[in-house]
Design a protein around this nucleic acid. Structure first.
Lengths: 268, 268
DNA sequence: CTGATGTAAGTAAGTACTTACTTTTATTCC
DNA sequence: GGAATAAAAGTAAGTACTTACTTACATCAG
C-alpha cells in the first residue's frame, strides 16, 4: 500500500509508487491551496461516511495520501477541519468561496432555487412543486454525502447543522411559503398555513430521499420502487389536490359517507 | 495488596459513600438482571446522545454508577451491549422480552397500531390518518431517544437500523397500504400507488418530528409553531383531499384558474 | 539560499477489554 | 438460630492499542 516509507532513495527516478488508489490521486507535491482543498474533499467524504467522531485524522491523512502531520499543518485542530468543511459546503459554487473552484456543485438551496423560481414566474403550480421535489431528490441522490453529513452534524450537535438549517431550510420555507401565500391571496389555494404545506411537502420528499439513501439502499429489497420523476409527480399531485381551493359551489370532499364497506376481518 | 479501596476498616457499618449522583440512582448492589437492565437503559440514553462510536464504555460505566469491569461482566463486548439494546428496544413491552418489565413502553409500531386499527374498523379515514400521525409524533416526542438511536444506527451502518426498518417501517407500509388499497377498491380513494401515499404521509409526519427533535429544537426559534394535534389534523386534511376520489360528475379540482377568492367559511 | 511542503517518529491521553482480588448474599448443614 | 461455603457482584489497576496533535528533520521550487 503505497506506504510511505517507500524509500525514495530508490533512485530519484520518477517511478511514482501507485498513489494509494484513493479518490484523491494526490500523487506528489502540491501547492498549499490545492492540498488544503484536497484534504477538505477527502474529509467530507469520510465524515459523511462515519461521522466526525468516527473518523480519525489518520484515516483522512491516509486517504489523502499524505502524513498526518500535513493535516495539522493546514488545520490547527480536527475541529478546524470541520469548520473548513462548513465553508466549503456552504459556499462552493457561489464564487464567494476562498477555495473550491466553480466546478463544484452549488449548495443545496441554490441548486433547487433556479428551476423553481422559473416555474413560479409562470404561475405553474404543478411545475413549482414538481421541479422542487425533483431537484431536491436528484441532489440527494447525486450527492449522498450531503444528507449524511447533515444528519451526522445534527446528531453530533455540531454547529454545522445549525448553519445548514439556516442557510437551506429556512430559506426554503421563506420563499416557498411566500409563494403559497400569494397563491392563497389569489384564491388558488385554500386557507392552510403555508408553512405546514411546505413542511408536509418537503417532509415527504426529504424523507423519501433519506429512506432511499440510508435504509432502503438495496433497490431489489426496496419497499417502494419508483423513479425520482414519478415520486415528484405523485407527491405533487397529492399535495396540490390537497391544497387547491374548492371550486365554488362544490362541497368539500371530506366527510363522505363510507359507501364502501371496509371489512374488518382482513389480513393480519 | 491492592486493596486500595480503603474503607474496609470502616467496619461493616453501612456508611454508604454518596452514589455519584448519576441519573441512575444505582445506590448499591443489584441482582444481575437488574444491573443488566440498568446498564442497557443507560447505554440506550448515551448511544442515542452520542452514537455508538461516540460513547465510551467508561462513560457508560460511570453513568451507571459502576466500574467498567461490570459492563464487561454483563456484556462480552461493546457490540454485545448494542445487540442487547436491539432486543430491548424491539421487544420491550411485548411480554416476549427476556428482561425489561412490561412497564416499558411498547415498541414503535405496536404503539401506533392500536388506535389506528380501531379507526380502520370504523372506516373513519380521517381518524385513521390523524391518529396515526398523532401517535407517531407523540411517540417521537416522548421518546426522543428512539429517533436519534435510529438515525445513528442507520448512519453507522449497524444492523440495528435494518431490524428497526423491517420491524417497524415495513409493517407500517404493509398494513396502512392494505387499508388504502381496500378503500380504493371501495371507490373512496382515487387510483394512486398506496405505498406512495404511505410514504408521503409518513414522510411528512416523521420529517416533522425529526426536525423538531434534531434541528429546530428551540421552540422560540422554530419555523413552524404547531402542536402535534394541529400538525396531525393539517397533514391529514391535505393528504385526504389529495387522495379521495373525485365525486362522480365533478371534474377534478386541479388545474383551476384562480378566480374565486378563497373566503368560503373555512371548515374546521 | 530560503521558505514552504513534506515526513518519521514521537507523546500524552484515551480506547476497549482483562486480571487479580475483595465484598456481599443466598444457601446449606449443624 | 448461626457459622461455613460457594457463587455472584463488585473493584482498582492493569494491557495493548488508538487518538489527536508535536517535534525535529529532510526535500524541493523559485
Amino acid at each position: 500500500m503505497s506506504r510511505a516509507t517507500t524509500r525514495d532513495g530508490a533512485s530519484g527516478a520518477a517511478a511514482q509508487p501507485p498513489p494509494a488508489a484513493q479518490a484523491a490521486p494526490a500523487g506528489g507535491r502540491m501547492a498549499a491551496d490545492e492540498r488544503r482543498l484536497q484534504i477538505v474533499r477527502v474529509a467530507v467524504r469520510l465524515f459523511s461516511e462515519r461521522g466526525f467522531r468516527g473518523t480519525t485524522t489518520k484515516e483522512i491523512a491516509h486517504a489523502a495520501g499524505v502524513s498526518e502531520a500535513i493535516i495539522f499543518r493546514h488545520f490547527a485542530t480536527k475541529d478546524d477541519l470541520y469548520a473548513a468543511i462548513i465553508d466549503y459546503k456552504a459556499c462552493a459554487g457561489t464564487g464567494a468561496c476562498p477555495f473550491a473552484p466553480e466546478t463544484e456543485q452549488p449548495p443545496f438551496v441554490e441548486a433547487v432555487r433556479r428551476p423553481v423560481e422559473e416555474a413560479m414566474r409562470r404561475g405553474d403550480d404543478r411545475a413549482v412543486f414538481e421541479s422542487l421535489a425533483l431537484t431536491m431528490m436528484q441532489h440527494h441522490q447525486e450527492d449522498p454525502e450531503f444528507l449524511r453529513l447533515l444528519m451526522y452534524s445534527a446528531l453530533e450537535g455540531h454547529q454545522l447543522a445549525q448553519i445548514f438549517w439556516d442557510k437551506n431550510a429556512r430559506v426554503l420555507y421563506d420563499f416557498l411559503g411566500a409563494y403559497i401565500r400569494e397563491r392563497q391571496r389569489g384564491g388558488a389555494f385554500r386557507d392552510v398555513d403555508p408553512l405546514v404545506v411546505v413542511r408536509a411537502f418537503a417532509g415527504a420528499v426529504t424523507h423519501h430521499s433519506l429512506i432511499n439513501s440510508l435504509w432502503d439502499r438495496d433497490p431489489a429489497r426496496r419497499i417502494l420502487h419508483i423513479t425520482n420523476e414519478e415520486a415528484a409527480r405523485e407527491f405533487t399531485k397529492i399535495l396540490l389536490r390537497g391544497i387547491v381551493a374548492d371550486a365554488p359551489g362544490v362541497k368539500p370532499a371530506r366527510e363522505r359517507k363510507r359507501s364502501a364497506p371496509v371489512k374488518k376481518g382482513k389480513k393480519k
